[in-house]
């Protein structure tokens, strides 16, 4: 009897201590979350403020709300509609995702499953390009694309993505494929499948989590890329959103910060949507995928 009471008391105390710790944990996580989300919330709410009440204002709740900023944004810039800029960003983003998923996975398959002569050397060279900052190749690349007459088009921005020039993604996929049991390909080979078939029917379906990861990164990087479009695109009709956003705050003439906030808010929506849609694929485990396949 006594013993039970005592152990119950102990259990309650442990539980209480544990719940106290849980509360503390959650409070601090929520506090951190608020700090992290604050700039985003400020951006969102500022887009509803009149332009001259945005800067210097640190509070969140606007005194006056207005939709004028969004109206200005939808009117476009210099006679070019907001949707033109938006669709340019979409083309570039979707193009990069398709290009990277196709080309990098094929390349990764080659590196991890085919024993061709010089594989180690080529792999090392590919990794080596990771160490090369973008700024080093920017001038020769520009001259090359310019000679080909590709400037002011999306080709220079996308061609590398279709040719597996992003070593980071190739590397990511190679590492992933190394975790896929070789027995899977071997049994496929016994059934008479060649490399194309193994790649297409065995590897690609198994690679779904890594393809999702690569897609998210590829999309976000392309969506936020500023320098490359700035250099390669000349006609405002071809500008993606990051170039458009800068137009609202020209330091030498009048700036419209309200419209900039509104445009930034609109520009964030697809990135967030894309992340929400694809993130569940990353979470799914590799092993379960292997079994189900």
């Amino acid at each position: 009897m006594k013993g039970t009471v005592a152990s119950e008391g102990l259990g309650r105390r442990v539980r209480r201590r544990r719940s106290g710790r849980t509360v503390l944990f959650h409070v601090s996580v929520v506090a951190l979350c608020v700090v992290m989300l604050y700039p985003g919330a400020w951006l969102l709410l500022s887009s509803f403020r009149p332009t001259n009440q945005i800067l210097g204002e640190t509070g969140l709740i606007p005194d006056h709300t207005t939709l004028d900023n969004f109206r200005t944004v939808f009117e476009g810039i210099g006679g070019i509609s907001f949707w033109t800029f938006f669709m340019n960003s979409v083309y570039l983003g979707v193009g990069s995702v398709i290009g990277i998923c196709l080309s990098c996975s094929v390349t990764a398959y080659g590196f991890s499953r085919i024993a061709f002569p010089g594989r180690q050397v080529f792999f090392a060279i590919m990794i080596g390009t990771l160490l090369l900052p973008f700024h080093v190749v920017i001038i020769p690349q520009f001259i090359m694309f310019n000679e080909m007459g590709w400037t002011d088009s999306f080709v220079p921005l996308l061609i590398g993505k279709f040719l597996a020039a992003d070593a980071f993604f190739v590397f990511l996929m190679v590492q992933f494929m190394r975790t896929v049991p070789k027995e899977l390909d071997e049994s496929a080979r016994l059934d008479g499948a060649g490399h194309p078939r193994i790649y297409w029917s065995i590897m690609l379906p198994l690679m779904r989590p890594v393809l999702a990861t690569a897609s998210i990164f590829a999309f976000i990087w392309s969506w936020n890329d500023f320098l490359a479009p700035l250099i390669y695109l000349r006609s405002p009709e071809n500008y993606p959103l990051p170039l458009m956003l800068r137009q609202y705050a020209d330091q030498t003439s009048t700036s419209d910060y309200g419209a900039q906030m509104a445009a930034a808010t609109l520009a964030l929506v697809p990135v967030i949507l894309f992340f929400v849609l694809f993130q569940r694929y990353i979470v799914e485990g590799v092993s379960t995928q292997g079994l189900r396949g």
Binding site: I139, F142, N146, L230, I231, D250, Q251
Partner: peptide, 21 residues
């Protein structure tokens, strides 16, 4: 007339690449 515009700093980046080519 084909027009093009950019923010001041970006404008000069674009013109330097134009000059390169």
């Amino acid at each position: 007339v084909q027009t093009g515009f950019a923010e001041f700093q970006d404008y000069w980046t674009q013109r330097s690449t134009d000059a390169t080519s």
